[in-house]
Design a protein around this nucleic acid. Structure first.
Ligand code: FES
Ligand code: FES
Lengths: 141, 141
DNA sequence: AATAAACTTGACCATTTTAGTCGGGTATGT
DNA sequence: ACATACCCGACTAAAATGGTCAAGTTTATT
């Protein structure tokens, strides 16, 4: 049960972006340096964020990315969905009529994992980028 | 963000066990057949459950496993902990003074992932094996 | 017009994790 | 004796992860 770097980085990068994009487009190079994330990897991530209309790109010198929506309209759900960081607790195909291991019945714990999935997704649906902007400066340890 | 089979199987197997161990010890072979889980894999899992005093073993013919505690005392947390299915949302070492990527500060999303981890763990702490016994027969699809 | 910054695309890859398998044991009820 | 069932450690194929690399295109600036 772990979060992958792709999802973590996507959120990190967007928080960074949201802080600075009022002034100018923010280049991935800057985000890379500030957050310590590989530039090449960021490009992959932003390509997906763009396809999902979470950010807009501006090409050329002085270009970069800007948010495509208000920070309070961007939920973690949206971000995670964009970069394919999905919550998957059940083993069976969700829409299939079959259970785990190709059995005809749903397994005895299926309902439990469904509950868990909802529980987690609720968290993501209730958090927007805006929530992360306040009171979340880097905290010295 | 996904649940691994080890954790899923551990819970599945224990629910199965809890249903039948009032009468006789339950053999892994039976669980394997009923739940469609590889016997060899179950042995690995039960070895850990035993070390963590969640189940007791009885060797020899007619042997098997029985619960070592009341179903309402066995939380999902305990089960997951036993089989090393841990919830890990942050990238940094939890107790280290360093953040992600060896930086001296905690990253801007660290608090968020901490919150998430707590959110998920709360779910596991509030569910016991007993909760899963009622109303959780295999449901025909 | 030349240059350099920055986005775009797609292929490639090493490492780690997962989900097992396999081959030997040892204990014990019948 | 013998079959059942637990016990233990090593091994491994396949998938996922977390990137890197190469070769573009676009556009602001000089
Ligand atoms: S998780 Fe859906 S049937 Fe097992
Ligand atoms: S998650 Fe802890 S510092 Fe990034």
């Amino acid at each position: 049960m772990k979060l992958t770097s792709k999802g973590r980085y996507a959120v990190m990068a967007l928080v960074d972006l949201a802080r600075f994009d009022n002034i100018n487009p923010v280049s991935l190079r800057d985000i890379s340096l500030r957050q310590g994330i590989s530039l090449d990897y960021l490009e992959q991530i932003f390509s997906k964020l763009k396809k999902n209309e979470i950010v807009k790109s501006i090409r050329g010198t002085q270009g970069g990315y800007v948010l495509n929506k208000n920070p309070n309209e961007i939920k973690l759900t949206n971000i995670f969905h964009a970069v394919d960081e999905k919550v998957k607790t059940v083993q069976c195909k969700k829409e299939s009529k079959k259970g785990c291991n190709g059995k005809a019945t749903k397994c005895i714990t299926h309902n439990l994992w469904d509950e868990l999935e909802i529980h987690i997704n609720t968290f993501f649906e209730n958090k927007s980028l805006k929530d992360l902007l306040n009171n979340n400066k880097e905290t010295r340890v």
